[in-house]
Design a protein around this nucleic acid. Structure first.
Length: 581
RNA sequence: GCCGGCGUAGCUCAAUGGUAGAGCGGCGCACUCGUAAUGCGCAGGUUGUGGGUUCGAUUCCCACCGCCGGCUCCA
């Protein structure tokens, strides 16, 4: 049986309080901070001089079980602010004191008591600690008080809780499965990419297998863009500092940019973005309103300084290739162009079998309009265009106040993978800033210059992040169209080798990526290896197949498919490649 | 960057204040084999880097590099 999301949240929130109570019992010197429910679990932040150890987590869990057994009633009570302050001051709970002090006067102070433990909390909670069933503490991590890196770092204990053991076990299995699918692990096992301490952190090396995957994706991406009226452009990796000063990056993005390179006494910077280059190309001639829209796409490799602690496999790196594009258009074309981009986004996500995705509309913080570039008029125009484009595409979206970049509103797409985990997907941004800064324009019907609107968008994000996502989404078992090796031919004995080579050639002639395993090993061994490498098809050839001029086909997922003629198999695999299944 | 943990052979991992061992992988030999691991043998490590403590460090301490879990940030 499953319970509502609200009930789950209450359960987890209450479990976090039980954890805090257990910690207070075991470590009386600890100060407690905050402990909310989060997606899939809960955490609680503590201020403790000595770090929590793995063993501590075991002890805390044990104490939590005792508290559950004690079945202490959890009782909320509204109290006068002064009383609460006095109580927490006396207990030395300075974080709670700070929280109460910062509460708006109108807000009532509620204290929840369970046994000897009292916590400041809005609630609600389960009625007693005995209602808490299945939980597990997962890990300890540092976290800044109130999420601000200027504040003291506290220790956060993460845990999860469920109403039943089945659900808890299921969740823990999902975590184990996620670990098995980790792109860092599979990337190494499947020989897709590597990172090197000697080469520098956050810099990705694409091995031949990864190279093929990337090539297939890039070809598909380019062809699709050309079909949709994009042009392909290429731009340099470095530019003079002047360019970055005009674009404004040197001002507001400098902490993500690498130090200048001196070339003949002039400072050049490695590009963190492609936009200024595309704008330079736009400016090479006078543009007519008839020329617009221009859609310029580039797989542009950019370099950004990322703080060492955030680097993560291929997901978060310091050099990556964005599937970037900049669209220049008249304001009246904005909505249609957005519809086009949204359609491309949906097409691309579905091509890679991402079935679920959520759209978010990031707009200005209405209370801080002065933080943003551009007049109210253009913001409203852009927002209206974004909303009606999404409506026309039949898309439901969430509105995120204050999530916009300072230069324009945006659509952010979050995709869900095969394990139901969310990933940052495509982003579509309207930009008012750069056309202004670079003073770009087009000549209108009225023979006067006008400011074009610019859309900046990525569909895949970056090749690195996208492929990392695909590895985990597919569990390394890429569909045939993406698989580095689509079929491996396995001759049973040496005398079958020539026939295997003939079969290989026949496959190559129809552009299949195949190879022959000619090692003097047993069939079972070769098959096992091909299975471990997650190769979609194994083609076994022996005396029987040579006699009949056929092949024995084994599928990675369905096992032995029996003997068939070559054209029959080719038809099957070609159809799968075409349909991307 | 910050908090905590970690760094031993290509990979996964073991061991010890007295200079390291296994499985897998690799190489060699034999086997010529029918749908997830044939057998035997061999090679492979300045224990991340630098410094310190010590008669002696891979083990203890410090710094740096890198990795892992988070925070903050992000394609």
């Amino acid at each position: 049986m499953s319970i509502s999301e609200k009930d789950m949240e209450i359960l987890r929130h209450s479990t976090s309080h039980v954890m805090a109570q257990a910690v207070r019992r075991l470590f009386p010197e600890v100060k407690v901070a905050i402990g909310p429910a989060i997606e899939n679990g809960f955490y609680y932040d503590f201020d403790k001089p000595e770090p929590f150890t793995q063993q501590d987590l075991g002890l805390i869990e044990e104490e939590m079980r005792k508290i559950v057994k004690e079945d202490l009633p959890i009782v909320g009570r509204e109290v006068p602010r002064e009383e609460a302050l006095g109580l927490f001051n006396e207990a030395g709970e300075t974080y709670k004191v700070e929280l109460i002090r910062d509460m708006p006067d109108a807000e009532v102070v509620i204290l929840y008591r369970q046994g000897e433990f009292v916590d400041l909390c809005r609630g609600p909670h389960v009625e007693s600690t005995g209602k808490i069933k299945e939980f597990k503490l997962l890990n300890v991590a540092g976290a800044y008080w109130r999420g601000d890196e200027k504040n003291k770092m506290l220790q956060r204990i993460y845990g999860t809780a469920f109403p039943t053991k089945v659900e808890l076990d299921h969740y823990l299995e999902m975590l184990a499965e996620a670990e098995k699918r980790d792109h860092r692990r599979l990337g190494k096992e499947l020989d897709i990419f590597s990172l090197h301490e000697e080469g520098g952190a956050g810099l990705v090396y694409w091995h031949p297998k990864g190279g093929i995957i990337r090539k297939v994706i890039e070809d598909f991406w380019r062809d699709e863009h050309l079909k949709r009226g994009y042009d392909l452009v290429f731009s340099p990796h470095i530019a003079k500092r002047d360019l970055w000063e005009i674009s404004g990056h040197w001002g507001w993005y400098r902490e993500n940019m690498y130090s200048p390179i001196d070339i003949d006494g002039v400072e050049y910077l490695l590009k963190p973005m492609n936009c200024p280059f595309h704008i330079m190309m736009y400016k090479t001639k006078t543009r007519s309103y008839r020329d617009l829209p221009l859609r310029w796409a580039e797989l542009g490799t950019v370099y950004r300084y990322e703080r060492s602690g955030v680097l993560h496999g291929m997901l978060r790196v310091r050099g990556f290739t964005q599937d970037d594009a900049h669209l220049f258009m008249r304001p009246d074309q904005l909505e249609d162009e957005l519809v086009g981009v949204i359609d491309l986004v949906k097409f691309m996500m579905e091509s890679f079998s991402y079935k679920e995705y959520d759209f978010e509309l990031s707009v200005r913080d209405p209370l801080n309009k002065e933080q943003y570039v551009g007049s109210d008029d253009v913001w409203e125009l852009a927002e209206t265009a974004l909303v009606s484009a999404m409506n026309r595409a039949g898309i439901k979206f969430r509105r995120m106040e204050g999530e916009a970049k300072f230069y324009g509103p945006a659509i952010d797409v979050h995709i869900k993978d095969a394990l139901g985990r969310g990933w940052q997907g495509p982003t579509i941004q309207v930009d008012f800033n750069l056309p202004e800064r670079f003073d770009i324009n087009y000549i209108g019907e009225d023979n006067a210059p006008h400011r074009p609107v610019m859309i900046h968008r990525t569909v895949l994000g970056s090749m690195e992040r996208f492929v990392a996502g695909l590895i985990e989404h597919y569990n390394g078992a890429f569909p045939v169209w993406l698989a580095p090796v689509q079929a491996r031919i396995i001759p049973i004995a040496d005398r079958h080798f020539d026939y295997a080579k003939d079969v290989e050639k026949a496959f190559r002639d129809v552009d299949l990526r195949v190879e022959t395993d000619a090692r003097p090993e047993k069939v079972g061994y070769k098959i096992r290896e091909a299975q471990v490498e997650k190769i979609p098809y194994m083609i076994i050839v022996g005396d029987k197949e040579i006699d009949e001029e056929k092949i024995a086909v084994r599928s990675r997922t369905e096992g032995d498919l029996g003997v068939m003629a070559l054209p029959e198999f080719v038809a099957r695999i070609v159809r799968e490649i075409r349909e991307k299944i």
